[in-house]
Design a protein around this nucleic acid. Structure first.
Length: 268
DNA sequence: CTGCCTCCC
DNA sequence: GGGAGGCAG
């Protein structure tokens, strides 16, 4: 009788242990799934999805975009952000003043470098892409987000390209965008801090939902040519900038997307 | 020198 | 999408 009870108690103990461990295992599985989601959420919020590599080692994350700052050129070598369809808005926020980006540890350029220089303070992340909130809009007026641009270029073909990207964001339900000037050595500079004036600007657009990519390389002058005349392969932009775009993509896919100059999948 | 305002294309 | 001049602190 005593022996039988012992067996019974052992059995109960084993069942309890199984139950406890099983429940903990369940919780652990739940935790790891939640953790993945949490990481994805944080990455999305800090724009660490699909960031290019930095040749300068100074990547800065703002709420609405990230950038890699080049101290020698006193501007970003790239800015990167996701332009969601839900971001598109026609709100007209009051235009703020340009502010020095204090997140840049080496000191971002002052906007006064541009004063009387003959060049526009050209947005890299367009304010027009951030009209969904006052904060996101104002954040584009940091000096880490501007580059000296000829007014005719900025207001001309470059503006046309920015509008085309917004059209694509709407048509294809969101795109990832990377933009910058081609920062080489020996460029003309403006202001006391010697902000470099790029000879060309590039823009890379990735439609992750439909797996297609397109890149533009534009000489720093206005043009009446159609936008698709400036399409180049992403690979060629990587060669002249030293930047690796979308390194997180699976290699075969990345190689395929970045080698092409075929823009037939993009509606102009 | 920097921040801000007003008027301008 | 931007610029210039001017004024106060």
């Amino acid at each position: 009788m005593v022996l039988r009870n012992r067996h019974l108690y052992s059995l109960i103990a084993i069942l309890i242990l199984l139950g406890v461990y099983g429940y903990e295992y369940f919780l652990t599985e739940l935790d790891s799934a939640e953790l993945v989601k949490e990481e994805a959420r944080v990455k999305t919020e800090t724009n660490t999805f699909f960031l290019p590599t930095s040749t300068t080692g100074q990547i800065i994350h703002h709420k609405g975009y990230s950038l890699s700052y080049s101290e020698p050129h006193e501007q970003a070598e790239w800015v990167a952000y996701e332009l969601k369809k839900s971001h598109l808005a026609t709100t007209n926020f009051k235009r703020p003043y340009f502010e020095i980006d204090h997140a840049v540890k080496t000191g971002a350029a002052s906007w006064r470098n541009y004063k009387n220089s003959g060049y526009d303070r050209g947005h890299l992340v367009p304010a027009g892409d951030k009209n969904y909130s006052q904060q996101a809009h104002d954040e584009t007026f940091l000096t880490s987000n501007i580059s000296p641009q000829r007014h005719a270029f900025n207001a001309g073909i470059w503006n046309a390209l920015e509008q085309k990207v917004r059209y694509w964001a709407s048509k294809y339900d969101g795109v990832f965008v990377v933009t910058g000037g081609v920062l080489t050595s020996g460029l003309t500079t403006i202001g006391t801090e010697k902000v470099a004036v790029p000879d060309a600007f590039y823009k890379v657009v990735f439609d992750a939902d439909h797996n297609k990519m397109i890149a533009f390389l534009m000489p720093h002058k206005n043009s009446a040519e159609p936008l698709y005349n400036f399409v180049v392969s992403v690979d060629s932009v990587e060669v002249i900038t030293g930047i690796d775009f979308f390194p997180e993509l699976e290699d075969d896919l990345e190689n395929q997307l970045e080698a092409t100059t075929d823009y037939s999948g993009w509606s102009f």
